[in-house]
């Protein structure tokens, strides 16, 4: 028999994680719900969700390739480099904002039914990751057009996706606290996301920057995620061991931090929902 004791000791991070694991069948249903709703049982839905990254890529390609005549070193093709950058940033932005939204807009459920809110954040980031997989279809086409192929490192894509899921879940939980407390935090975060996008080498090669700017760009953890993604899928960049470590460390650190802070503030957050 299950017993709820409000005075039972709650371990930070561990107790919420156990709760999520015990409810993994709910997690599966939530992910299925997200995907069914997004694709509405049609192929058009899949293309519809790709419209945003593809259109962004088209605009950026025109601006930077045709207007500014940007060139990558060693005559590397610009389009696969750019598209992989846009897909990576879309995964990050979408996972982060959807995770935060899932909690802020989940008030209807979260204030009536006992369910760990972290499950909602997870379902959002996992469905963004699946969405990202669909984005690999046009990227693969572009790679093949430019005479490249995904490469033998492709299985390592799973490591990249796992790290990105941990990162966006942790950050999304932190952002959810802001979303619930401050109505205007949504518009502010968009400015930060835009700044972050420019600080990540999405449409420029790092080597084109001065030594000081390069240091700043390397301090941005997302740079390492993007470099790893480009390395493992299509070989559009070479990720250093330092970048792999940066990705692994920041994902786990942010995830644990997000779970810790969110778990501690949840009683106050739920009262405000």
């Amino acid at each position: 028999m299950q017993v709820y004791d409000s005075a039972a000791k709650q371990l930070p991070v561990i107790t919420p994680l156990k709760g999520v694991w015990e409810k993994r069948s709910l997690l599966r249903l939530l992910v299925a719900r997200d995907l069914t709703v997004r694709y509405k049982r049609s192929v058009i839905g899949i293309w519809w969700s790709l419209l945003n990254p593809l259109f962004t890529t088209a605009v950026m390609f025109y601006v930077f390739n045709t207007v500014f005549k940007a060139r990558l070193p060693d005559g590397q093709a610009f389009l696969p480099y750019l598209l992989s950058g846009v897909l990576c940033m879309t995964l990050f932005n979408q996972g982060l904002t959807m995770a935060a939204d899932s909690i802020a807009s989940g008030a209807g459920v979260l204030t009536k039914v006992h369910v760990r809110p972290e499950i909602f954040a997870f379902s959002a980031t996992i469905s963004s990751a699946i969405n990202f997989l669909f984005g690999l279809i046009p990227l693969t086409v572009v790679l093949l057009i430019f005479g490249k192929h995904p490469g033998w490192k492709t299985p390592l894509l799973l490591v990249f996706m796992a790290c990105m899921t941990l990162l966006t879940t942790g950050l999304g939980l932190l952002l959810a606290i802001a979303y619930v407390n401050f109505d205007d935090s949504r518009s502010l975060i968009n400015i930060f996301l835009l700044a972050l996008q420019y600080m990540t080498p999405v449409f420029y090669p790092i080597t084109a920057l001065g030594p000081h700017t390069q240091k700043v760009i390397h301090l941005n953890p997302l740079t390492s995620y993007l470099q790893v993604f480009r390395d493992v899928y299509g070989g559009n960049a070479v990720a250093t061991i330092h970048e792999w470590l940066m990705m692994g460390f920041t994902s786990i650190f942010v995830f644990v931090l997000g779970f810790y802070i969110f778990g501690r503030s949840w009683p106050k957050v739920v009262a405000k929902l």
Binding site: V3, Y4, D5, S6, A7, K112, P267, V270, A271
Partner: peptide
């Protein structure tokens, strides 16, 4: 179990 009490105890 939606709102945890800030003090006291529920079983």
């Amino acid at each position: 179990r939606v709102l945890p009490p800030t003090s006291g105890r529920v079983i």
